[in-house]
């Protein structure tokens, strides 16, 4: 299914293979990911019950990020996509993080 003879003509030029390359992911992989997500949901509820002070927020966000990562890399196929897709996502995430971070230069120092 791979048809990228065009690459020799100078990088990723704008003509596309008529048939496209794709990966079919086994149902079993998806099922494992789902189990992982369900377990992490349990963990986050459990951790929220333990008084850790401000670390509760951190723990909740870390677990949520792990879950989002599972969805992104498996359900959304990011693991199997070309480099392009993996380069695009950080652009959006870094932008959002910068915006929120910079705003706190105001609100944290009032």
């Amino acid at each position: 299914m791979k048809e990228y003879e065009g690459k020799a003509n100078g990088g990723s030029t704008g003509f596309q293979p008529v048939k496209n390359e794709y990966h079919v992911i086994p149902y079993r992989t998806y099922a494992m990911v789902w189990i992982g997500l369900a377990v992490l949901t349990g963990v986050t509820i459990w951790v929220a019950g333990i008084p850790l002070g401000r670390f509760n927020v951190l723990a909740a966000l870390l677990i949520a990020t792990a879950k989002a990562g599972l969805v992104l890399f498996f359900f959304m196929h990011l693991l199997y996509e070309t480099t392009l897709f993996r380069l695009l996502l950080p652009v959006a995430l870094i932008t959002l993080a910068s915006i929120i971070g910079l705003t706190f230069f105001d609100f944290s120092f009032r």
Partner: peptide
């Protein structure tokens, strides 16, 4: 810009 550049139209052309 990512997908429809003509053959040989590299980023720096």
């Amino acid at each position: 810009i990512h997908r429809l550049r003509a053959p040989g139209m590299t980023w720096f052309r």
